[in-house]
Design a protein around this nucleic acid. Structure first.
Lengths: 215, 215
DNA sequence: CCAAAAGTGTTAGTCCTACACCCATGG
DNA sequence: CCATGGGTGTAGGACTAACACTTTTGG
């Protein structure tokens, strides 16, 4: 069923940089393209805007189709619109950034995706289209927003140790922060509350905290 | 000449919130719509993305068509994409924010614009489409970015007094800042250099400064 | 000489950053 | 008992915000 317009319209798609934390490494979700162009290359998940949804809904829908979860944190951060960025047709890409817990997810290769995998940020493969540039901007944006420590909760389970929270911070920031300073900021900002539980591990047990809802 | 696609494509347009400073008031450029829908209403300038340009170029081009100048400061700040935001057809709006000196400009009513005017931010008329929301977000974004005082240069002539610069700050912030603190920040940041000239006015002459290019 | 705008420093409080040692547990 | 990670406080420097008077000019 064709759709006809008086002047040329670009296709509009959302592309999503989905980050998670795996074994201490900030990692990115990529799908392997199952068809041309760039067949066999890795690319960001995403897809075209449907007629009855806005861009935020499109990003949520595409992410859910790919991962089965509603992202806790998903926001727009940039547009990519070079006329020749897609060799098939004009596509304007609305880029989103998501953070989520990878352990909640069962990756589903979508219709046009041959495979889906997490890659540590430090060892990404070559990417299709201009997706490498999108990722670079996404990482920069993510680090800028790290001033708000609350974004870390998207990477953490319901209850967590402060060391786990700091490990998340270090992984996102790409550099370690001082332990006492980190704890002071978290407590002074009233971000967490003590669950009363303790973790059990090989060493001294740690207090478990949960996110404190801002009242 | 019709353009046909296999699935529906939205139209993509840039809308631009152009701010300037007039008699100490932060003011916004609006055009009066010359055709339906919202005929006779005021709206943001902007227009559709052309096939051979990216979104930044589109915003620059539309702004130049409307004002005759290249904006010193023009950047994307949000997208607006509710499916029914334009009653005629699906239009995704890529919103840009510009600052410029109104005295450099001769407003040109474009093809579909019946009129073009500056409105003080405090007394805007009702706006077409969702443009009121776009303006609200634009103002919020502008104030957030005011941490970088360099954006004020877009509102100032080549050489200016520090009082003029502070008046620009106060107008954008919507609240006055302490004079001594403002001057200290400007000097400590090395933003300006003394021209050696003095202003002449009704009262004590003031030193004239110019923007110091970051080296 | 008067009205109006230009110009100028200090202080208290807060925030940021660097820094080192003892504790509790499992093995 | 030892290896490992958990947990705690302080001090110096930087930055922020509040605050008032003198100077210069035109009229």
């Amino acid at each position: 069923m064709p759709f006809t317009y008086e002047f040329p319209h670009p296709a509009v798609a959302t592309d999503i940089a989905v980050f998670t934390l795996i074994a201490g490494d900030l990692s990115l979700l990529l799908i392997k393209r199952g068809g041309p162009p760039f067949e066999g290359s890795w690319a960001l998940p995403g897809g075209f805007l449907a007629p009855d949804e806005d861009l935020d809904s499109c990003a949520h829908r595409e992410l859910k189709e790919e991962t089965g979860v509603d992202a806790e944190l998903l926001f727009h951060f940039a547009n990519f619109s070079a006329p020749d960025r897609d060799p098939r047709q004009r596509v304007v890409s609305i880029a989103y950034l998501a953070l989520l817990r990878f352990d909640l997810i069962t990756l589903k290769a979508g219709s046009d995706a041959a495979d889906a995998r997490w890659f540590p940020l430090a060892s990404l493969p070559n990417l299709a289209f201009d997706h490498r540039e999108i990722v670079d901007v996404a990482v920069r944006t993510l680090r800028e927003r790290l001033g708000d420590l609350a974004i870390l909760f998207a990477l953490l389970p319901q209850s967590f140790t402060l060391t786990a929270m700091q490990d998340a911070y270090d992984a996102v920031a790409g550099a370690p922060i001082d332990k006492r300073n980190f704890r002071k900021v978290v407590f002074d900002a009233g971000l967490v509350e003590d669950t009363g539980e303790l973790s059990r591990g090989r060493h001294r047990p740690a207090r478990l905290y949960r996110r404190k809802q801002p009242s």
